[in-house]
């Protein structure tokens, strides 16, 4: 009994186990702070390249530009944690942009926004049902939703930008103004990240989502309804993509079905740069936020440095690979 008490008190039972634990925690520390280190290096590098970079105006600009990607990255993180993927976020954002521009002409603003978010959630529920209950591959199902939702947005808008006119004024006011010196869309992103942080780390739902990505069968055999949880992450992803779409309409004052083309790729890149594993179970909210910021800073500094657009895409690809190698490289080598 005394022996046990000593062990509970934090002593390691055997040397060999202590070594494995040490290696595990070293890897964990790197996963925790590796993303942050990359971000700091990038910021330092960027500030040497341009005087404008660290100016308040530029920082706020980056935050506002990345707010949509950031909000969608939250949903993507939850999906990726369950070992899934959601390719439909960009298209659902377009649907959100178009439908919000249409609906605010007929309904009071809160009602209209509620309907738009619900629409995104329904899109996510359809994908989620097919993935979770019918066990169809997430990649294919959300690819299908990607085309379908984009098509739906084009039908609703007739292929033309939707001008909400005077009814859109309150939404535009929200999207273009500042609170406490921050652009409102960025504040909304911060708030959603904070909620996601609490949910993922302190709620039953968040814990189960993470566990599903690590060992779905063990979760199921613990008497937990795995399918409902898997479906729920797609609902969340769809709803958040809708919100991202509303923000675009709010910022631009126009609802366009061309919103968010290929945005899913940026979103996935941000989540992966943030250290999440596409094999599920690994990833965090704070790191995902930093991943979003890394993506934003890379684009921003290349603009400031006058790198031509086509070149930017090549550099971006290289930088994504470099970031991921820095996070996972050591564990790849070990295997």
């Amino acid at each position: 009994m005394t022996d046990d008490a000593a062990n509970v008190g934090g002593h390691r039972a055997t040397d060999s186990r202590a070594i494995t634990e040490g290696r595990l925690s070293a890897r964990r520390i790197f996963a925790q702070f590796g993303t942050f280190a990359i971000f700091i290096v990038l910021v330092l590098l960027a500030s040497t390249q341009s005087d404008v970079f660290l100016s308040e105006r530029n920082i706020m600009n980056v935050l506002r530009q990345m707010s949509g990607i950031g909000i969608m990255a939250i949903g993507m993180l939850f999906v990726v944690l369950t070992r899934g993927i959601d390719l439909s976020v960009g298209s659902i954002a377009a649907l959100g942009a178009v439908s919000s521009a249409l609906l605010i002409q007929q309904y009071p603003l809160p009602v209209a926004i509620g309907m738009v978010v619900a629409l995104g959630a329904i899109c996510g529920a359809i994908s989620g049902f097919l993935v979770a209950f019918l066990r169809l591959p997430a990649f294919v199902i959300t690819l299908a939703m990607m085309t379908a939702a984009r098509g739906f947005a084009l039908i609703l808008s007739n292929g033309q930008p939707v001008m909400p006119g005077a009814d859109g004024a309150p939404l535009s006011a929200f999207g273009t103004s500042f609170t406490f010196g921050f652009p409102n869309p960025a504040l909304l992103m911060f708030a959603l990240f904070a909620v996601a942080f609490l949910v993922l780390n302190y709620s039953r739902f968040g814990r189960i989502v993470k566990a599903i990505g690590s060992n779905e069968e063990a979760v199921r055999l613990s008497g937990i309804a795995v399918s409902w949880h898997v479906m729920a992450v797609y609902v969340i992803s769809g709803a958040l993509a809708s919100i991202a779409g509303i923000l675009v309409t709010a910022r631009s004052g126009v609802g366009s079905a061309q919103v968010g083309v290929a945005a899913e790729l940026d979103v996935i890149a941000a989540v992966v740069i943030g250290g999440a594993s596409l094999m599920g179970g690994r990833g965090g909210v704070i790191n995902t936020f930093i991943g979003v910021m890394i993506l934003g800073v890379i684009g921003n500094i290349m603009n400031l440095a006058g790198v031509p657009g086509y070149h930017q895409q090549v550099y971006l690809g290289v930088i994504i690979v470099a970031a991921v190698v820095m996070q996972h490289g050591t564990s790849f080598l070990r295997r």
Binding site: K210, N215, E217, A218, L221, G281, R282
Partner: peptide, 8 residues
């Protein structure tokens, strides 16, 4: 494989 979530 079924009893525990090893990484948790």
């Amino acid at each position: 494989g079924q009893g525990i979530v090893l990484d948790m």
